[in-house]
Design a protein around this nucleic acid. Sequence first.
DNA 1: GGTAGGATAAGCT
DNA 2: GCTTATCCTACCA
Length: 197
Amino acid sequence: MQAPTAGPLPLQFFARDTISVARDLLGCVLETTLAGKITAGRIVEVEAYLGAADPAAHTYRNRKTERNASMFGQAGTAYVYRSYGMHWCMNVVTERRGQPTAVLIRALEPLVGLDHMAIRRGLRKERTLCAGPGRLCQALAITRQHDGRRLYRKPVRLIRPAQHGSVDIGVSGRIGVSKAADWPLRFYDRGSPLLSR
DNA sequence: GGTAGGATAAGCT
DNA sequence: GCTTATCCTACCA
């Protein structure tokens, strides 16, 4: 299922199997409206994390901690965590409540507010503005404040754009994980020059 | 072009 | 202690 019209993605979009949500998120837009600044980018790279049965997921074996609690929540909410002690990474929670599955947003093509992004990022080139899960959170000012927040309304929301062309989807193993790294759960837009690698 | 090392915090064994 | 769903800089080619 893809939402047939433009606009914020509805809850039902997220309450589906994680791999379908991951693939359908490619080409959609992540937008934040924070401190009066609007920034947005087109999603070009994601990874699926399949919960209790996935050794690379934070929720492997259904282990619930303070950090990953929002992964057990409702579909369409955010799971934001700190990575390597210094970066924020954002996931979209999928499937049913209690099913701790999510999609990690790994790269965006900057669309709106590039000047704000550049300032937040420390004046980097467009190539590295949003190409990487930590980078895009910094560029859009996403932090732990947004953990558990709904993603179908402001200030952080996911939108299906009016001109949502078909995406040529590439598949590969996941990046940066050591366990189950070869599972084909990374999805990306083959046409994009702005992937994380 | 490529890669090694460091920053830094939370979870795991 | 050690590892980790990362990124940046410095250095070498």
